[in-house]
Design a binder for these strands. Structure first.
Length: 435
DNA sequence: GCCTGCGGGCGCC
DNA sequence: GGCGCCCGCAGGC
């Protein structure tokens, strides 16, 4: 992404005004700087796939968040697909404390307990995210590279809460369908918001809408408890039409087409013909007080090919396994759904530079015996963009500047000296082939 | 109940 | 002073 090219820092007295923006990245990792349009709903919410909590940096202009890490099993058990348990820690301290010590929800786990794997990716401290709002853009900067797997998607825990709080059902397929429907609902609302925003912004001359970063789309109109459908690959969103921004003749014209969609997930359908009024205890899957003992050696056998959804519908399948696989993949409808947990992958991963001056800090390994990491570079869908105009802000002040002017600008006031480029590396979905 | 943002306060460097 | 972190509070969902 833009690191290396961009010259601004979130703490600069003034930040540039940019005319083109990055598409939102939910899983920004490494030292990343991005610029989002002010209409980007995710950016406005300071959303992140990582579990980020607010940190007081005593700067009202810059919102700072630090990573809470990931909730893992103390026994480091494996899921049926060979991956590990990596749940999303609650942001609320109280809720997070409640999470810890609970039995590992993996039915294949023997006695494991949930514990927080703290993030130490920034020189031994948690990775931090910074958000700064200006009139014309939302600046994002991340410091540090996460040294732990991605937690489950943000929506997953919400889905579980929703399911757990709702009527109890029996039947994994139905549960999955409901989960998907809830996630669908969430995504639908998100997209509807974006659509309405698109209209509004066109009318009110706001920046272009965010192109959804997730690659899936609601494919049915089922209600949350009637859904008979499942995720499928999204048809690429239509590129933003630049000429809908008449008031910004110099801006937004280069707003990019969305990144190519991730490799499509296999079409996944569920038989939801199960009785809807059966009884199911969510905790039977999510929280098992007495994990079921393995009936086979874990390390050897759990590395088998993940169960497919065909397996799921097969009477011989272990539904909870398929559920776990699906949970890892699809819950929440976010990027993590397309990018399985990093521990699924081999040993070839080279952990990125830590960007720490004090290199002596021993970088924490999540599963050191396997070097299970994944490219911690920037956000995945980060189209390269050109800058045509820059403006500089001093916490709200606006000092317009275009490229021509910049050639001669002495930067006596705005501490910004070189061509600003929000380009950043186009993330490669290294995981898609495994989906 | 939980998420989120804000802000006071403390300790460390 | 900068930073990390804890805590409590309040608004919102």
């Amino acid at each position: 992404m833009s690191e290396g090219q961009s010259e601004w820092d979130i703490n600069d007295a003034v930040v540039p005004r940019v005319s083109s923006f990055d598409s939102f990245g939910e899983w920004c990792d490494g030292h990343v700087r991005r610029v989002y349009p002010p209409g980007c709903e995710e950016a406005r919410r300071h959303a992140s796939g990582w579990a980020m909590r607010n940190t007081n940096n005593h700067n009202v202009h810059i919102l700072k968040k630090s990573c809470l890490g990931v909730l893992v099993c103390s026994a480091r058990c494996r899921l049926p697909d060979g991956s590990r348990v990596h749940l999303r820690p609650a942001i609320c301290d109280k809720a997070r404390k409640k999470q810890q010590g609970k039995p590992c929800p993996n039915r294949l786990c023997n006695g494991g307990r949930l514990e927080v794997q703290p993030c130490r990716g920034h020189c031994g401290y948690p990775v931090t995210h910074f958000w700064r709002h200006t009139e014309h853009a939302i600046f994002f900067q991340a410091k540090g590279a996460h040294d732990h797997p991605r937690p489950e998607a943000k929506g997953a825990s919400e889905v579980r809460r929703s399911i757990g709080a709702g009527r109890r059902v029996r039947g994994l397929a139905l549960l999955l369908a409901r989960e998907a429907a809830i996630a669908d609902k969430m995504l639908t609302g998100k997209q509807e918001k974006q659509m309405s925003q698109k209209i509004v912004t066109t009318t009110h001359l706001q920046p272009p809408p965010l192109i959804p970063d997730n690659q899936r789309v609601l494919t049915c109109a089922c209600g949350p408890f009637e859904c008979t459908c499942r995720w499928r690959a999204e048809v690429p969103v239509e590129p933003y039409v630049a000429n809908t921004w008449p008031a910004e003749p110099q801006g937004y014209a280069t707003y990019p087409a969305p990144a190519p969609p991730a490799p499509t997930l296999q079409q996944q359908t569920y038989d939801t013909s199960l009785p809807a009024d059966d009884i199911f205890h969510p905790e039977e899957i999510f929280q098992l007080d007495q994990p079921i003992r393995l009936d086979f050696p874990m390390e050897e056998t759990t590395l088998e090919s993940p169960p497919t959804f065909a397996d799921l519908n097969n009477d011989n399948s272990r539904p909870e396994e398929a559920y776990w696989l699906d949970w890892q993949r699809a819950a929440g409808g976010s990027e993590s759904s397309e990018t399985p947990s990093p521990e699924l992958f081999g040993n070839g991963y080279q952990h990125p530079e830590n960007f720490c001056e004090q290199q002596s800090y021993p970088h924490q390994m999540y599963y050191p015996e396997e070097a299970q990491y994944y490219p911690a570079e920037s956000c995945r869908e980060s189209p390269v963009m050109d800058m045509q105009e820059q403006r500089f802000y001093r916490y709200g002040q606006d000092c317009a500047q275009n490229n021509m002017d910049m050639q001669a600008w002495q930067y006596s006031d705005c501490a910004f000296a070189s061509h600003f480029d929000v380009q950043h590396t186009q993330g490669v979905n290294n995981f898609g082939g495994l989906l």
